[in-house]
């Protein structure tokens, strides 16, 4: 598996650290309520298909990335810098 880092170009998977669902970028408001916070902290989908995950280019430029990947085919369809994702 290879990931096309927007900064470094296409690199081997071993240079990256997998962090988890990119839902972490969608932190609820402080007063959003227990359900929203419960969902944000604990509940994750487990799709057979597209996922949107955070990866860290740990052994590269150090960027946080949002990688869109298909868990069925392992195809990576999109990689963007996390800081450029509009929240």
């Amino acid at each position: 598996m290879r990931i096309n880092c927007p900064v470094c170009g296409e690199r081997d998977r071993r240079e990256f650290y997998y962090v988890g669902d990119a839902v972490a970028l969608d932190r609820p408001d402080r007063d959003a309520g227990l359900d929203a916070w419960d969902s944000y902290v604990h509940l994750r989908d487990n799709p057979a298909g597209l996922t949107r995950d955070l990866w860290h280019h740990e052994a590269g430029c150090g960027a946080w990335l949002v990688v869109t990947r298909n868990t069925g085919t392992h195809a990576v369809s999109d990689v963007v810098l996390a800081r450029e994702v509009v929240r």
Binding site: C8, R14, G60
Partner: peptide, 16 residues
């Protein structure tokens, strides 16, 4: 090193 090293002079990479 897991990157293609056929790079031009002056190129720098962060890698392993």
């Amino acid at each position: 090193v897991p990157v293609d090293l056929r790079v031009p002079e002056g190129a720098v990479m962060r890698t392993l």
